[in-house]
């Protein structure tokens, strides 16, 4: 499977994959908003026939905060392509881009409390930590874990360390 940065031409394929995989869906305009604000952050996994079989839709937090912070709006992989390491790779590419292009300090996401596969991916494979519990976050009333991963190599941390050591 080909893993590459998402382009405008990929957005409808991402929307399609999202509608097949997850109950949290968005209209095309929201995909446009991501791609036309942070073109480097979203990635797709594509099969040999050009079909999008997995994607990560990502952004930077817009509210001014101390450190630039990345956020995963949505990630999913079509069922026949799961357990190939695609989500893991998509996530890593997006994370690297957040740091390289936006100097991100950390990355956040929400996940359903019952989503074992995703939690295992984030926590065990990628090293995320739960930093908040949000009651009834989802439309159907399910709670969400707010998860976070702090980029160790980020410039922000380096700055702090430089101050400490000087």
């Amino acid at each position: 499977m080909d893993i590459r940065q998402a382009t405008i031409d990929d957005l409808l394929g991402m929307q399609n994959a999202n509608l097949l995989n997850l109950p949290e869906n968005y209209t095309f305009k929201y995909y446009l908003y991501h791609a036309l604000t942070w073109p480097e952050l979203s990635y797709v996994a594509v099969d040999p026939r050009g079909r999008i079989v997995g994607y990560i839709l990502a952004k930077m937090e817009e509210e001014p905060s101390e450190e630039p912070c990345g956020h995963v709006t949505s990630i999913s992989v079509l069922r026949p392509y799961r357990r190939l390491g695609l989500a893991n790779k998509l996530m890593k590419q997006s994370q690297e881009a957040m740091v390289a292009h936006y100097n991100a300090h950390h990355i956040t996401l929400h996940v359903r409390k019952s989503n074992r596969a995703a939690i295992s991916l984030y926590r065990d494979t990628l090293g995320f930590e739960v930093h908040a519990m949000e009651k009834s976050y989802y439309a159907d009333g399910e709670d969400a874990y707010g998860m976070r991963y702090i980029f160790t190599g980020s410039k922000a941390i380096n700055d702090v360390e430089r101050i400490k050591t000087s």
Binding site: L12, Q15, N16, L19, L20, N25, Y26, T27, F28
Partner: peptide, 8 residues
């Protein structure tokens, strides 16, 4: 599904 533009 129409609002969400579910083409399939």
């Amino acid at each position: 599904l129409t609002d969400l533009q579910c083409l399939w």
